[in-house]
Structure formats: C-alpha cells, structure tokens
Computed example of a mutant assay.
Amino acid sequence: MTAGPAGSGRWFHRPLPRPEARLRLVCAPYAGAGAGVYRPWAERLPADTELLAVRLPGRENRLRERPAQDWPSLARDFAAAIEDQVASPYLLFGHSMGAMLVYETVVRPLARPPERVLLSGCRAPHVPRALPAIHELPPARFHAELGRLAGTPADVLAAPRLMAVLDPMLRADIRLAETWAHPAPDPLPVPVTAFWGADDDVAPPAAVGAWRALAPRGFRGHRIDGGHFFLHERARDLLGLIDDEITLCQAEPRRSNGS
C-alpha cells in the first residue's frame, strides 16, 4: 500500500470492518446516493468478505465538498483513494452512475486492478441513453422527474429546504450520468459481470448486455426481476448472485498487477 493522498479514507465507509477478510467488495453508488445505500449489505456478505461503500463528494460527511464536475478528475481521485485504502484482492461493484465510475476508473488503468468488475443497471458506454435528459430542467420539473425515476425518496423530495441543499449534488450527478458516452470505448482490462433489471427503462437489458463487447477477459450476465432500482426491490436476489460471484472469484486463479 502507498502513502496515498491526504484524506483518502473519506472515500470509504466500512460498516462492518473485517481487517482479516480474504476479499473486499467496493461498492459505488448511483446518482444522488451515498455510502448508506450499501450499509445493509455488510452483514449479508460472506464472513470472509469486507464491504467498502464508496462516499462521493457532495453528500453525507462530504456534504461541504463540491460535487464532481467531470469524469477524468473523479476517476483520478477515486483511483488514488483505492490505491491507498483498498487492499487486494477486491471486486468493484457499481450501480447505474456507480458502474460508469467503475468503468472510467478501471480503464485508466489502476496499478492494482480489481479481480473483476460488477456492473449493475448501467448501459455500456457506446449505447445511447434510453430516456431524455433532465439535468437542465427547472427545479419543479427536475424534482418531479427524480421522483418518477424512484431514486430519491419521497420524503426528501417533499422537504424544500433539504432539496435546496441537495439540488447541486443531484444535478451534478445526473449531468455526469446523462452526458456519459464513448462512441469507441476502450475494453475493460479485467473480467466483467453485468446485472440488468428485466423491466428497467433507464438501462434496458440489451443496453446492459452490450458490455459483453467490452469484456475480452470474460463476461457473465444476470437478469433480475424489477426496474432500474432492482438493487433495492430485489436485494436478496442480487446479493445471492454477488455471493456466487465472490465464490467464483475466490476459486479462480488470482490476478496480479493487471496480468
């Protein structure tokens, strides 16, 4: 492990520290979300796996930090935090915008890459977005669309003062996700597992399955009932599949420095 950048620990929340874990599962959140969305997973993972939930700028205890404005700097800073804080071997999981961050970070590439990336509810980078953009809508319409997408809790949307605080972070995240595109994307240098919701209209099954074309080191795909937020609607199903991925990862030959 390197000395790393000052404050790199603020990127990760360890709900159930397991310093002797054989494997670490690093989970990046969807747009507008924080590390807290993964907290319930910690006790449901295998006993030899430690959960590290990613906390992005502009939320939770990083609320005073400016939300990320561009992919290169966000991926660079996230990569530096991984190098400093995450021991190998590890898996990188991301849902929706979190999966975009996983891709941007891994293709740069990392000095110590993950054993595998787990990409959930996210179109491949060469596939156009399925829905119209909302990040430039006026506040009332923007908040209404957030409610329709079901990613922001209704009680949060109904709190004007809270929404005034959160709006810059939400817009920044949504803008990053909606403008993310690579017409000629680089392939991933590690194996890929993709998860898609059978009724997801944000990242339709075919758009998520298109990751196969960017996975020369191996691809597995899993269909899960539900819409875009199947990670909440069908958490038990998703965690069962992640458990299987952990078991398979521990049985496969160990990767070393990207080889």
Rank of each mutant, 00 (worst) to 15 (best):
A28E: 02
T179P: 06
L188R: 08
C27F: 00
D243C: 12
A181G: 08
R64Y: 07
D200T: 04
H143F: 09
F195E: 00
R108N: 09
A172I: 10
P40L: 10
P5Q: 11
P72A: 02
L52Q: 03
F93P: 01
Y103V: 10
R62S: 06
D237W: 03
P67K: 06
R24Q: 05
Q85G: 09
A33H: 03
L118T: 02
A210Y: 08
G94C: 13
R254Q: 15
A99N: 01
F230S: 04
L188W: 11
V102P: 03
P189F: 11
R175P: 08
R116N: 08
F229V: 05
S73M: 03
P204M: 05
R129W: 14
R116K: 13
L119F: 08
W71Q: 00
V165H: 09
S259I: 11
V26F: 12
R123P: 03
A150Y: 10
L170I: 08
H143L: 13
G197C: 00
A47K: 03
P253A: 14
P132A: 15
W180A: 10
D84E: 13
E178V: 12
M163F: 07
R18G: 06
V37C: 06
A124E: 02
R161E: 10
W196H: 15
W11I: 06
E115Y: 07
W11G: 05
M169A: 14
D200M: 03
L45W: 07
P138E: 15
R123T: 04
G9F: 03
A80G: 08
G58R: 03
G94R: 09
T2G: 03
L166N: 00
G197H: 01
F219K: 02
G7R: 05
A235K: 04
P139L: 12
L157I: 09
R217V: 09
S120G: 02
L214F: 06
R22L: 09
A251K: 09
L131G: 14
R234G: 01
